[in-house]
Design a protein around this nucleic acid. Structure first.
Length: 812
RNA sequence: GCGAGAGUCCCAUAGUCUGGUCAAUUGGGCAGGACUUAAGAUCCUGUGGCUUAGUGCCUACGAAGGUUCGAAUCCUUCCUCUCGCACCA
């Protein structure tokens, strides 16, 4: 059997018969989706192959279970890497992307993935991204989009700003060597924080891997505390603290060096010092900032402690985040390690206000005390347990209207504008008189102009026709926004577009979205925990509140597949030379062998190492399947076969449904191993159906060889006839194995020439041994007696040693 | 530091939720055998230790304790590893 020919044949037949295309109907729907790829020039890598295989097996299984399965595929084809790659080879990003996408599609088809190709979408098509623009405008109308000058993350390699989510440990998510710089720039933001609470609360109900949920929760990072208002120069400055109980220990304040109102705090005498400090802070990246020693400078201003009325100096510091809380903190060096470090450095007094033993001596304090204790030196609160004081102080502040209990989030609004070409143009026009004016809906899409010059700065600025426009409001000369949208905007709603991908009137028909959504099973890598998965959830909620969808969550179930590592257990990389190209594997062995191998290695959620020996093993197994089916005697199934098949129908279904493909392959191996040649057509067909989700091409071929006209891919999963399951057969297998093992063991131990093997079994067990099988395996003549057989040949009187499941043995 | 997860017989992996049927699944490797002129493919067997005509015993599922008649499986503590977040006040 030429597997490659077969694969191609069936791929063509599937496509021609459109068997994976679906419409809304009365059947129960099931939406299976793998995160769509970013099509790169280098083609599909083995990791892609793996996720799509994982998703495809699931989709195929659900389809066979009779569900109306939507399984679409698309391409996240706008974005920076394509732009950069295209520039490097001196091509236009559009042409470059088109080529890459074509290549991806070709390779995916070669894997036999059961997509509804009629729904294929590409985010770089204006027919798609016009709806990005539409959504942007709707968000704008609703007040979910705004422009603001803020300290933002800048990647010098990407030459654009980045969202918070795209900064990983101070580095650009795409350039692990590039430190992100903080710049003050005017940028577009999406008010993702509007949904902080809902995003946080609803994570609990999601059927997602623990760690993804915990990562998201962390990312949103809700903390409960108290807002306290300090008076500085007659102005009210709120700060956020989780430790209001230590308010009497505040000996200084620190405002972020990036704080927009820092200037107003700096006195003329301190201006020089502060400027010097700011210059120094500016030149360091966020990453360095983290490892850096805490530094600061006195601003010259003083704050008034609302409870003690003490006058406390205000510093500007490099360790306070401008964007968290109010960008200023109250510093309690005795009870906070950061404040302690700072106070020691600048010789600021340290005042103990919480003590486990009433001690107030701070001069020999080695580190901040963060434990519990009684309040000391704390006015009316002195003597109170500090945990009780958290509430008591908050209450008191509330009473005098200088504070209140509140919550804070780490989560920030999403910075969506990018100073690059290959993205969705932001549909806004800047007018000197009218300000930021949204493009009219009828003017959408704002298409990306082809004619631009790539070089320094945003290429879109080089197309004057694109930039110079009339203001939609006052018709005067105006400038088009040249920033484009973050690529994550595109992927935040593509799953909705799949419900109605060719609609040119609406972004999707609401009824269709109602039918298909939510995505019943989403599948993808963990790297998107705090990026795509948060944005997509936000979009769904925002679109719900705009009336476009009815669901609250797009992906109630998420499955994270593991990584495919190189043979050496390292991440595959060109420099390590451990890269495996799926195309080569397909050619050498077949798509089915690759699919089978990838899922047979380990449970799909775990990492796995590539193994050349392993793929050979899978290839061998596939040949074994072919060999069996071709030599099977079709007629009536032996009872043992009926038992084995029916048991497998049940067990494998359970494994497929729970992403336990690895154990499914183990059971399939076990099944084939024990199948006898005599089998009914129906049982043989069941066997083919069982393997079909993993090795679909082979299954179709075997299926059609049985003179079936239909596609096994859309046949229904076989019914398990429980009456046919008879554990006696498993017992027999076990007894037989053990007996063979025993006989061979004895043969090994003695060196007599043996011709005959006599077995003496307990009468009850007599049917539990497969004598033929034993003969074949020990390659000797075997004679079996019941122990109570009067006529038996037993010169050594061995028969008395027989036990349940264990015959007595005599050799001669 | 905080959070999530994991540690099983040469390697990988199943079993852990629902304790006994577990020296423990499956693949790979290795070893022996069958087939073959030979090789390959295929098939059978073995692969913790000692021991034995198929037996029995010991040691074992990261370490140490505990619960139990009984633990790879439940509880406690510890160690190691992986991943994510990280000056969030």
């Amino acid at each position: 059997m030429d597997m490659n020919k077969i694969s191609k044949k069936w791929q063509e037949k599937w496509e021609k018969a459109k068997i994976f295309e679906v419409k809304e109907d009365s059947k129960n729907k099931y939406y299976v989706l793998e995160m769509f790829p970013y099509p790169s020039g280098s083609g599909l890598h083995i990791g892609h192959t793996f996720v799509y295989t994982v998703g495809d097996i699931f989709a195929r299984f659900k389809r066979m279970q009779g569900l109306n399965v939507l399984h679409p595929m698309g391409y996240d084809s706008l974005g920076l890497p394509a732009e950069n790659a295209a520039i490097q080879v001196n091509e236009h990003p559009k042409d470059y992307t088109e080529k890459s996408t074509k290549n991806f599609i070709k390779q995916q088809k070669e894997l036999g993935l059961s997509y509804d190709w009629s729904r294929m979408l590409k985010t770089c098509d204006p027919t798609y991204y016009r709806w990005n623009q539409f959504i942007f405008l709707k968000f704008f109308e609703k007040g979910l989009v705004y422009r603001k000058k803020a300290p933002v993350n800048w990647c010098s390699e990407c030459k654009t700003v980045l969202a918070n989510e795209q900064v990983h440990s101070g580095k650009c998510w795409r350039h692990e060597k590039v430190d992100v710089e903080i710049k003050q720039l005017e940028q577009w933001f999406i008010k993702t924080t509007e949904y902080s609470d809902e995003l946080l609360d609803m994570t609990d109900d999601l059927d997602w891997p623990h760690r993804i949920k915990s990562m998201q929760k962390h990312w949103i990072g809700k903390s409960y505390g108290t807002e306290i208002i300090f008076d500085i120069n007659g102005e009210k400055w709120p700060i956020f603290t989780t430790r209001p109980d230590t308010i009497f220990g505040v000996t200084f304040m620190v405002v972020s060096a990036q704080h927009s109102k820092l200037d107003s705090l700096v006195t003329p005498e301190q201006k020089l010092e502060v400027d010097k400090f700011l210059k120094k802070v500016k030149s360091v990246s966020e990453k360095e900032l983290e490892s850096l020693e805490k530094e600061g400078v006195f601003t010259g201003s003083y704050a008034i402690n609302p409870l003690s009325n003490e006058k406390i100096p205000v510093y500007a510091g490099n360790f306070v985040l401008a964007e968290y809380g109010s960008g200023m903190v109250m510093a309690v060096p005795a009870h906070d390690p950061r404040d302690f470090e700072f106070a020691k450095k600048y010789k600021i007094p340290i005042k103990i206000v919480v003590s486990p033993n009433n001690s107030k001596e701070s001069s020999n304090l080695k580190e901040a005390y963060r434990g519990h204790g009684k309040l000391v030196d704390s006015g009316d609160f002195t003597g109170m347990d500090n945990q009780d004081a958290v509430d008591a102080v908050a209450k008191q502040l509330e009473k005098i209207k200088l504070g209140k209990k509140t919550t804070q989030y780490k989560f920030r609004d999403w910075l969506v504008s990018r100073q690059r070409y290959w993205g969705t143009p932001i549909p806004i026009i800047h007018c000197d008189s009218c300000g930021e004016v949204p493009v009219l809906e009828k003017d959408l899409p704002i298409e990306l102009p082809q004619d631009v010059v790539f070089g320094e700065g945003n290429p879109l600025l080089t197309n004057e026709k694109f930039v110079n426009v009339k203001c939609p409001k006052c018709k005067k000369d105006a400038k088009r926004e040249t920033d484009t949208m973050d690529t994550f905007f595109d992927s935040s709603w593509y799953f909705l577009r799949f419900c109605d991908p060719n609609n040119s009137k609406e972004m999707f028909n609401p009824k269709k979205a109602d039918y298909w959504m939510p995505v019943d099973q989403y599948i993808g890598g963990a790297e998107h925990a705090c990026m795509h998965l948060i944005y997509a959830r936000f979009f769904t909620k925002a679109l719900r509140d705009l009336g476009y969808v009815k669901i609250d969550e797009p992906f109630p179930k998420l499955f994270n597949q593991g990584m495919v590592l190189g043979e050496d257990g390292e991440k595959m990389s060109k420099s390590k030379g451990n890269v495996v190209d799926p195309r080569d594997i397909c050619k050498k062995y077949s798509a089915d062998a690759l699919r089978f191998f990838l899922v047979s290695l380990a449970s799909p959620d775990k990492d796995r190492n590539w193994s050349e020996k392993g793929i050979e093993g899978s290839h061998r197994f596939i040949n074994k399947i072919i060999e069996y089916v071709e030599t099977a005697k079709i007629g009536k199934s032996s009872e043992r076969n009926q038992h084995k098949i029916n048991k497998a129908i049940q067990q494998v279904a359970e494994d497929y449904g729970n992403f336990k493909y690895h154990t499914a392959t183990m059971k399939i191996r076990g099944l084939l191993d024990g199948l006898e040649p005599d089998i009914s057509k129906e049982d043989l067909e069941s066997f083919i159906k069982i393997i079909a989700p993993i090795v679909p091409h082979l299954a179709e071929e075997l299926w059609s060889n049985l003179k079936n006209k239909s596609f096994v891919s859309v046949e229904s999963w076989p019914n398990c006839d429980k009456k046919k399951i008879n554990e006696q057969f498993d017992k027999e297998e076990e007894f037989t194995d053990k007996t063979v093992s025993d006989i061979l063991n004895i043969l090994n131990l003695i060196d007599k020439q043996i011709k005959k093997v006599y077995l003496y079994v307990l009468p009850n067990d007599a049917d539990s041994y497969n004598l033929e099988d034993i003969k074949k395996r020990v390659e000797k003549e075997v004679i079996l007696y019941k122990v109570n057989d009067k006529e038996k040949y037993d010169p050594d009187n061995k028969s008395k040693k027989a036990k349940p499941g264990k015959p007595a043995i005599y050799l001669e």
